[in-house]
Design a protein around this nucleic acid. Structure first.
Length: 282
DNA sequence: CGTTCAACCTGGGCGC
DNA sequence: TGCGCCCAGGTTGAAC
């Protein structure tokens, strides 16, 4: 679930952590199996307790917490992970919790939590070298929020892949996931199966503009909370962008643009793609 | 190059 | 009511 807009919303939501000090590290408070934690519990505690949070960042679909030691704490939510300051949807799947020292005249502590129902995500503490190796420019393309036609065309213009599949390639452009890829191509009025190399400069312009606009709008609405209700912002509140989807999960329903054609669902690279066959011609 | 499949997990929805 | 299946916002690596 969490794609760029959801992860960016979570990142903004945990900004109150900035300037606070880690006083306690809780690993897997529930009796559940742990998610991927790196490094091990002892090293994690040793390198986290006493450090101060200096800032937050995002690496594609990951929330990054910058520490005054130069280390980075990286939360990768994958399908069902949440980075929270407020109570999670259930205590059962809480995986990790940092207790932060309060500040100000009435210091109240904060708890930075990672919750993950399916447990496919991870929490990793990385030094500068490890972070660069994992998320450097050779591993992660430029952020999709700043997509330009030149950038997309330079990175994908020669590819034979379908544009929908290519937009999910995090090395080409970082942050677009399955839901927003369909929404972006609908807004750009491009058929999702179009091979990248067949796209003209004008088409790349539309795709780049649609990428920026869709992602920015989704961030404004604090992301999409789908029917399973899993996604929440850091305060455990639902997003609102699901009410603005044009094609995602609307198979069989009439296109909101042409008000005629039913939205079609196809499968590309084993993943669902939604589009309007009338508005998005090959 | 590109595609396909399986794996990692939980849980909601559906047909029978 | 229950069972078995299919599906899901992601990523990775192996096989072809």
């Amino acid at each position: 679930m969490p794609e760029l807009p959801e992860v960016e919303t979570m990142r903004r939501g945990i900004e109150p952590c900035i300037g606070r000090q880690v006083v306690q590290v809780e690993l897997v408070p529930s009796p559940r199996r742990p998610i991927t934690l790196f490094p091990g519990p002892a090293a994690l505690r040793k390198r986290l307790i006493g450090v101060t949070i200096q800032g937050t960042d995002r690496a594609g679909k990951r929330v990054v917490v910058l520490l005054d030691t130069g280390d980075r704490l990286v939360f990768e939510p994958r399908m069902t992970g949440l980075v929270l300051l407020a109570d999670p949807p259930s205590w059962e799947h809480l995986r990790f919790r940092l207790h932060l020292h309060g500040r100000g005249p009435r210091p109240a502590g904060l708890e930075l939590m990672y919750w993950d129902r399916r447990g496919l995500g991870s929490v990793r503490l990385m030094n500068a070298q490890q972070f660069a190796a994992a998320f450097g420019p050779d591993r992660l393309g430029p952020d999709a929020l700043g997509a330009t036609a030149e950038m997309l065309c330079a990175r994908l213009g020669d590819s034979r892949r379908a544009i929908k599949v290519a937009l999910l390639d995090q090395r080409a452009v970082a942050g677009i996931g399955n839901l927003y890829a369909s929404e972006i191509l609908f807004r750009a009025q491009i058929h999702p199966a179009t091979p990248c190399r067949r796209l003209r400069p004008r088409a790349w312009q539309r795709i780049a503009a649609a990428t920026r606009q869709i992602l920015a709008a989704a961030i404004r609405y604090e992301g999409s909370t789908l029917s399973d209700g899993t996604y929440r912002n850091a305060l455990s509140q639902s997003g609102g962008y699901q009410n603005h989807h044009r094609v995602y999960d609307r198979a069989g329903k009439k296109c909101r643009r042409c008000r005629e054609e039913p939205i079609r669902r196809i499968v590309q690279a084993q993943r669902a793609t939604f589009y309007c066959p009338a508005c998005q011609r090959r």
